[in-house]
Amino acid sequence: MDTLFNFLYASIIASTPLLFGTVGEILSEKVGNMNLGVEGMMWLGAFAGFYAAYKTESFLISLLASFGLAAVGALIYAFLTVTLKANQNVTGLTLTTFGIGLSLVFGKAMITAAGGAPKTSDVFNAKVAAINIPVLSDIPYIGKIIFGLNPYVYIAVAIAIILYVYLMKTKTGLNLRAIGENPAAADASGINVNLMKYINIIIGGGICGIGGAYMSLVMVNGSWQDSGVVNGYGWIAVALVIFSSWNPAKAILGSLIFGMFSSLRYYVPSDIIVIPTAFYQMLPFVVTTIVLIVTSIKKNKENTQPAACGINYFREER
């Protein structure tokens, strides 16, 4: 029983960066822009969030910095794809390369300046440590996994819920979804397509960035690593968008399942159940493929990619 809840706890910890990345990307894809730069934006956020935490010891400044720098990355992407109509896939991939390179270069400079691997202070670490609410956190088993998590987890879930309400229940959300499905129709009905695209791509990018900061500050305990820490989580988030069928609420469950995939192999007693490591590494992608096949067979309009996602909107070609 203990093992099960320890496993669940570890899965929640591992799923959080994925949740940030996924809901950020959902926001971008919902306005019709497939941003493959999630990985790069997470790297940017990982660096900026770490640097701010390292210098200021402030959780809020660190949060804003990670959001901010990743949002700048997303702004570049938005400018290239929305205004200049560059190919979305290529631009996204470029953003990934750019984000990784930039944070490694500045990360290296930070290491050189510190004369060794920089670390966040104990003061800051205490701010991002798992919270402890008297009585509630002490409830056997579920206390820890509901009331004993670090603040990022609650922020991630809150963002996912807010985005769900925003996308599905508000008029602005409806407009936004209209852009993703048919920008020409949205334009004709008086929605400012480009402005909406910009805003949502940038906010989405910033959210991805927080996920990166979570990785450098919580998952590796606030120690800057020579070769970075994000290493592929952004790509899993892109797959997770499909898995959660472009729904931020489903993304909570989806990222938890994918988080389980990353921690599963450390909690399965492998002296009893022998499964090759490669199998666990393959799981997220196999599951995504299966979900993709199942959803395309069901042909449910609600659960598919926005119709205009990946296609740039030329107003003049209506």
Partner: peptide, 8 residues
């Protein structure tokens, strides 16, 4: 090298 996995 996989810091996140090493942590888990």
């Amino acid at each position: 090298y996989d810091p996140a996995a090493e942590g888990i």
